[in-house]
């Protein structure tokens, strides 16, 4: 029987990064939950795995991965899945998430998020793989929309229609990355609100927020900057559309002091509360 606290996820969490281990150990900050990059915790006995075990009694945890490569045509990586399940048993996350993309092919692993053509055939392929993963997990997988810098000639539907189709076919849940919607909207010249309002609110388990870099010709989703004003504005609209769901601050490059991430989380909480108050008063 589990001795870990119930993984109740609410409020604004922070993505756990090894650069902050010492601060978290020393200060035990008032963070409602941490999200771990599960790929970095799949080796037993590593420093990061020991740290996650150490803090787990004090903090609920969610998993966020890259390595399922849910959109790949290669068979699901059984060893990866086996290790993920072992980690899940050990840390009891509230849920397991990965990305709506592919990362591996031809025997190689890019360790990066590569987009897919949006067609019904591809949606069928992905839904089938999500169902396999869900069977193994014994629960719904949470899938995140990715930011993108290209569009495929074969794509015959919008990204938001594609996401809805995958969810409909697989009954998975959604991790809505508001920054990714904004980045892709600028890169592909669509209306971010059209995308946002098409999302199935009852399927959204979590919202991600992060910062991008403006490369003049396109926005690059680097997770290396504070959340920008247009993304905060879109986040406010997301709260209006979806309601009260957990929010997470991600920062992966040029990582600042932990206190800076707490500031971002405070801003997210403030905006969320303002929007939720408006919902109550209408």
């Amino acid at each position: 029987m589990s001795t870990l606290p119930s993984p109740s996820i609410q409020g604004c969490g922070i993505g756990l990064r090894s650069q902050h281990f010492a601060t978290i150990e020393a200060q035990k900050p008032a963070v409602p939950w941490f999200e771990i990059l599960s790929d970095n915790y799949l080796i037993e006995g590593t420093v990061q795995r020991e740290f996650a075990q150490q803090i787990r009694p004090d903090y609920p945890i969610t998993f966020h991965g890259v390595g399922l490569s849910i959109g790949s045509v290669e068979p699901l990586n059984k060893e990866y899945l086996k290790r993920l399940l072992k980690l899940k048993k050990e840390l009891e996350p509230a849920w397991v998430s990965d990305h709506l993309c592919w990362t591996s092919a031809h025997g190689y692993n890019t360790h990066d998020l590569i987009p897919l053509p949006y067609t019904e055939h591809v949606a069928d392929h992905i839904a089938e793989r999500i169902l396999q993963v869900q069977d193994a997990l014994g629960e719904r997988l949470v899938i995140e929309n990715v930011s993108s810098y290209l569009q495929f000639k074969d794509t015959d539907m919008s990204e938001w229609d594609f996401i809805n189709l995958v969810i409909e076919k697989s009954d998975c849940n959604l991790l809505l990355d508001v920054n990714n919607i904004y980045v892709s909207a600028i890169n592909h010249q669509f209306n971010a609100e059209d995308y946002l309002l098409a999302m199935p609110a009852d399927k959204v388990k979590e919202i991600h927020l992060a910062g991008y870099e403006d490369k003049d010709t396109h926005l690059l989703d680097t997770h290396s900057r504070p959340v920008t004003k247009p993304v905060w504005d879109l986040f406010a609209k997301a709260v209006q559309h979806i309601g009260d769901v957990p929010v997470l601050i991600e920062w992966d490059n040029d990582i600042p002091e932990f206190s800076r991430l707490m500031q971002e989380a405070d801003t997210a909480k403030k905006i969320q509360q303002e929007q939720l108050s408006k919902l109550v008063n209408t």
Partner: peptide
């Protein structure tokens, strides 16, 4: 477009 060809071509091109 064959998804397998696309993914194989992309990965090959990523690495040279």
């Amino acid at each position: 477009m064959n998804l397998k060809d696309l993914q194989n071509d992309f990965v090959d091109a990523f690495f040279g």
